[in-house]
Design a protein around this nucleic acid. Structure first.
Lengths: 206, 206
DNA sequence: AATAAGGGTGAATATGATATCACCCTTATT
DNA sequence: AATAAGGGTGATATCATATTCACCCTTATT
């Protein structure tokens, strides 16, 4: 991408700034004023240049027709997915039924490739602390009914969801707690894998 | 918030849809067309209603003057901060100098209250694994030169940054590794606290 | 039967926003 | 000395957009 002059950089940042303030792009008039310029043509020329250099997309004859293009992460819009935070995990087929969804939370895109078939779960308890998963952590789960040995999974036993590592002993699969104080679980009758933990977020209480 | 009629819900979703397509709000004309209505006044009336019911903010005499307000997480925009990912941590005053910043990454707002004085750091090594911080984790650090005993801090010793827990023994502060295999560090001559770890993100390699 | 509210039409009007012209200044580059 | 490029001014023409008015239909509610 072609480099910007100091002034062009300034104009570019002003656009981003105005977009964050208003939630939509500025008009040429607004931009002119914020730049402290007297003539709108000043803004017009800069927009044309920023468009030519690939920093924005400028649609002609369109009010606020400015689209800021990705620029080394300076612009963060559209870099997130919206995933459902699941409260109660239930056994009935549609785990993501309306009632189970507490709210939607934005998750950075770099934590997962696609948004489909993912949901969030708040971890309760210390049974996985040796795997770096603490009480209160928010885990991103990919919804799937199978998993590989060694994966950290969300399993459903008797209407209760639990996060454990999938392990095998004597040819039998079981759920291994990553904390010696907690027992491993050798599931009895009915149990199922609901998904695999693919990412994690922790907010420290300050 | 007042409930929407079926049609109003439809209009509302159409607006969000158009915003995602274009990256800026639609004009009344565009909205009218997308709704399949013949008269712009149809769109105008709906906009007025959505504004009155608190779903949007509609600025008069303004092209594309539509702001979609928060609606149970359906709209995820602007829920993130853009923080610098620091590569090399250096001793020279401006830790956040241009050269040190690898890139900017969007961080969900709920992980921290304000964006000011925060940066990101990629954790290397296993010395903090008992505190739930693993190799490769991305920690969100609040930039501060002091910290309380028990805080997990980013410390700078001899031009190297390290993440440890701040502890005290015999009245002397030291850096405690949360992994018995790693030694605690009793800093010698020059060392400093650069910040406090306030959040964490982990992306599991799938 | 009368009324209110949601939803819609069509056209005139006002105004906000964009496009473009000619022209100016300064600083490098050739 | 000539030229090109960045940066800027001011005015005008044109277009896109928003606003408003009068009027229509349907479905509940009173």
């Amino acid at each position: 991408m072609k480099k910007l002059t100091r002034r062009q950089q300034e104009v570019f940042e002003t656009i981003i700034c105005l977009m964050k303030e208003q939630e939509y792009p500025p008009t040429i008039k607004e931009l002119t004023e914020r730049l402290g310029a007297a003539s709108r043509n000043t803004a017009v020329k800069h927009l044309a240049m920023l468009d030519r250099k690939g920093y924005i997309e400028w649609k002609k004859n369109t009010a606020r027709g400015i689209k800021v293009l990705e620029h080394k992460g300076l612009l963060d819009s559209r870099d997130e997915w919206s995933l459902p935070l699941v409260g109660a995990v239930t056994a009935g087929m549609p785990m993501l039924a309306e009632e189970n969804i507490e709210r939607y939370m934005p998750i950075p895109k770099y934590l997962l490739q696609v948004a489909e078939r993912h949901f969030l779960l708040r971890v309760r308890g210390e049974s996985m602390c040796n795997a770096g998963i603490l009480n209160g952590d928010l885990v991103v789960v990919r919804s799937q009914l199978e998993a590989d040995i060694g994966d950290i999974v969300v399993a459903l036993l008797e209407n209760e969801a639990t996060v454990k590592r999938l392990a095998v002993k004597d040819g039998q699969r079981y759920l291994k707690a990553e904390n010696p104080a907690f027992p491993d679980i050798f599931p009895g009758r009915e149990w199922s894998i609901q998904g695999k933990v693919v990412a994690l977020m922790r907010e420290t209480v300050v």
